[in-house]
């Protein structure tokens, strides 16, 4: 297989604030091949978004210290200078964030915001290029939308504008960070279908960050489950979701209300909450919430094991109780 488009190796993000050091992302490794579909799932506070933003060094550099390697097309974005980084941002890796109304400038017309992403295009051609991009995202009346302010558009329409902006520079990788969490189910489906078809048409890889396992199944090819700043399990979507190995993955799956489940069947939740980055447990980070935890889980961090193309970070991996 050819070299992956994006190869993240032992990425860690450390914040230093008022003399206190925290590491919300610690040693994250994964790869995305050209045109690949990778999902990162986990609860809030697991470090998913910070990992995504670190790919192009978006976290504030004066406080965040990034270590490890982020090889994008062969170059390490963590060591790039400003110009090099500017070429990667947008052109190489583009982002769509969760809340489109917060990502768009409220006092700028849609066409002017998209035009900002088209620096190489001559002024006279910008409007046409903008409308072309908006048409691509399936907006019903692209010419009208181009002249609108964000507040005149619905959430789904705003997210389509965000997509148009992300696609403006023909990125090789689209990072979609909870792109549909703020949207209704039918709109969610339209936006996800759109991302799918655009990725196919533009041969673009997609990194989808979400806490909704339902949208991962059937759309993405690989999944990484993140907990407390680490990837605890990864592999092909179908195999991870049907045969989860890590107790955290199993917990997440059991918590999803299913349509065909009997009514009043209690949902299985995961007790406790994600620990905060200044209090990561010494052993396995999930041990305090794990139903199968044993003494050694609390004391020593589990090693990452690999089998059948799947990685898992659990002491109990392969044992009968797991």
């Amino acid at each position: 297989m050819s070299a992956p488009l994006l190869q993240v190796e032992k990425l860690a993000v450390t914040f230093r604030q008022e003399g206190v050091e925290t590491t919300p992302v610690r040693s994250v490794s994964f790869a995305i091949h050209a045109g690949g579909r990778v999902a990162v799932v986990g609860e809030s506070g697991c470090g998913k978004s910070l990992t995504a933003m670190s790919l192009t060094r978006l976290p504030p550099t004066d406080r965040a210290q990034l270590s490890g390697k982020v090889l994008f097309d062969g170059t390490d974005t963590l060591t790039l200078n400003r110009d090099g980084l500017a070429r990667v941002r947008g052109h190489g890796i583009a982002y769509v964030f969760q809340d489109p109304s917060a990502s768009l400038n409220p006092v700028m017309r849609v066409r002017d915001q998209i035009a900002e992403c088209l620096p190489g295009v001559r002024r006279a051609e910008r409007l046409a290029a903008t409308v072309r991009l908006l048409t691509q995202t399936g907006l019903p009346d692209p010419a009208r939308a181009a002249n609108a302010y964000p507040c005149e558009l619905s959430g789904g329409q705003q997210q389509r504008v965000m997509l148009a902006m992300a696609l403006a520079a023909r990125p090789k990788l689209l990072v979609a960070d909870e792109p549909t969490t703020a949207l209704d189910v039918t709109t969610q489906r339209h936006v996800l279908d759109l991302i799918d078809s655009l990725a196919d048409a533009c041969q673009m890889a997609v990194l989808l960050i979400t806490h909704n396992l339902g949208i991962v199944a059937g759309r993405m090819s690989r999944i990484s489950v993140m907990y407390a700043g680490q990837i605890v399990e990864s592999g092909a979507v179908a195999s991870v979701l049907t045969q989860p190995r890590h107790p955290y993955t199993r917990g997440l799956l059991a918590a999803v209300p299913l349509l065909d489940a009997p009514r009043n069947a209690p949902l299985r939740d995961i007790p406790g909450t994600v620990p905060s980055p200044d209090a990561w447990p010494a052993g396995c980070a999930f041990a305090p919430r794990c139903p199968a935890a044993q003494p050694r889980c609390h004391n020593l961090p589990p090693p990452e094991t690999e089998s059948d193309g799947r990685q898992c970070r659990c002491w109990l991996e392969g044992t009968a109780c797991c």
Binding site: A217, L253, L259, D260
Partner: peptide, 8 residues
């Protein structure tokens, strides 16, 4: 509705 079992 994104349903895991159905999508798989």
């Amino acid at each position: 509705i994104p349903d895991i079992a159905r999508s798989l």
